[in-house]
Amino acid sequence: MVLEWEPTLETLPAFNRLLVTGHPTDWDPAGVSARLDQLMARAVSGPLPEIPCAEAIALPACYDTAVAPDLAEVAGRTGMASSEVVRLHAEGRYTVLATGFAPGFAYLGDVASAMAVPRRTAPRQSVPAGSIGLADRRTGVYPSSGPGGWQLIGRVPPSLFADASERLTRFSPGQPVSFRVISLKDFEREA
């Protein structure tokens, strides 16, 4: 989002919130809130402005049980067959709702309500890079290995996140994201 206003240092959208950062010495809260009200009014009354967002991306995803440790649990909790969970997840058309948690991590939504499951009660100490996680109505890909509490239902070849600057910039808010099913063989070749 572009505020086109000099004192704005940074804007950070996350879900239904927007953080606007400015330097305390050159703006006043009344001015900020008046400016935001004005922008909001324009947004709800007129046509939506063209918001530049990154190109749609289709991530290769392997849902083989060899790389999907929680697929059976998700199936059990939702009363669906594992193949049905995979089909629903892979058919989903998602939008980046927020980036954060870890550098390069994107919250994608919304996941079909039929497969919304709570996060694991005890987070894993280390989740492999590329893991596809599921929690509530959100899904996402862990760009690097680290602790994580989401249910793991597949993996994207981690080579997609090997380069540090690519890892950080692959996703941005508003970007459309989908998954493309690949076999375990293809996953191993691309990993």
């Binding site: 240092l9 940074e10 950070l12 980036t99 948690f101 991590f105 950080l168």
Partner: peptide, 9 residues
């Protein structure tokens, strides 16, 4: 790091 929150940094 200033202005890098969008990258999650």
């Amino acid at each position: 790091r200033k202005g890098q929150a969008r990258l999650g940094l």
